[in-house]
């Protein structure tokens, strides 16, 4: 106690501050940093969960980079990102921009757009999976058949499957992005719009010169957030292709699903850890690039 009494007020405050900070720090170290570090070590080992871990050096990475399936999966992961992010950004901005102007039943409409975000991804994926089936059970193909249009193979196709899986994923994320965009729109000071109105500026100019530039922080947030989401897409793909995960012919398999299969179907933990490290690096690099591009200028 005498040690504590001897401290100055400033030192005591520091001590207390660290005391409180220690709680989240310990928490993060134990449940975040330790497993992360462990996974990185594991990526250089070979382990099937049962026996001892054995050092494998770079073997896991060597196998990974020479595996054509990995490169296909790598490219698929970016397809989800490159198609999903811009589409969901444009649609959610469009909805938010117009919803912001609607006064009639505003709260109700907003709730409707938010609803899919709260729905379980698993339930949604299965409903869409059945929508996509052929006749006699598929909703879309039954509609096409009733007007005499030929069947479309939505999921059983190497070209259509990925967009078909992406559609419900985009739809599910819209609600959240719309809410964020609307909050961003509300945060723009009215005075800019009033000034523009006095100057008699066109609506397009207002949109391009005032609204969008002032939404930059919101856009940065949504782009980073949804990019990470699409890079980590799993539940939709897994549930819509459970019998043939990531199929047909790996055309819809994202990296996370490959990791899951390696770890929990083939029980090749070291190899799965190596894939996880690669995913971690991708997420890191993509996030850094986006932050840099969207913050500068």
């Amino acid at each position: 106690m005498s040690f504590y009494r001897a401290l100055s007020i400033r030192q005591k405050r520091t001590l207390w501050a660290w005391g409180f900070l220690a709680v989240p720090i310990i928490f993060y170290v134990v449940i975040r940093f330790y497993p992360t570090g462990n996974a990185m070590v594991l990526s250089f080992q070979s382990w099937n969960l049962l026996g001892d871990r054995e050092w494998a050096g770079l073997a896991n990475y060597r196998v990974l980079f020479s595996d054509p399936v990995f490169w296909q999966v790598f490219w698929n992961t970016f397809k989800y990102l490159l198609i999903g992010t811009p589409i969901s950004l444009v649609i959610s901005f469009f909805i938010a921009y117009h919803l912001d102007k609607v006064r009639f039943a505003h709260g109700f409409l907003r709730a409707l757009y938010f609803l899919p975000f709260m729905t379980s991804a698993v339930a949604m994926a299965w409903v869409w999976r059945w929508f996509y089936q052929g006749v006699p059970i598929g909703l879309f193909n039954n509609m096409l058949a009733s007007v005499g249009i030929g069947q479309v193979e939505f999921l059983n196709s190497t070209t259509n499957a990925l967009p078909s899986i992406l559609a419900p994923a985009v739809w599910a994320g819209l609600g959240f992005q719309v809410i964020i965009f609307m909050a961003g729109l509300r945060a723009i000071p009215r005075s800019y719009y009033e000034a523009a109105e006095i100057d008699g500026v066109s609506k397009w100019t207002v949109l391009w010169e005032i609204t969008i530039p002032l939404l930059r922080p919101t856009i940065v947030f949504i782009v980073v957030f949804s990019s990470i989401g699409f890079l980590r897409i799993f539940d939709h793909v897994f549930n819509m292709t459970t019998n043939n995960p990531g199929g047909p012919l790996n055309s819809t398999k994202p990296l996370v699903l490959m990791i899951y299969e390696t770890a929990f179907r083939s029980f090749d933990m070291g190899y799965a850890a190596a894939q996880t490290v690669v995913l971690f690096l991708i997420l890191l690099v993509v996030s850094l690039i986006q932050l840099r591009i969207l913050r500068d200028s």
């Binding site: 089936q133 052929g134 006699p136 059970i137 193979e153 999921l155 059983n156």
Partner: peptide, 8 residues
């Protein structure tokens, strides 16, 4: 037969 018939 048809492999994807009625999903499963």
């Amino acid at each position: 037969t048809d492999a994807g018939f009625m999903d499963e």
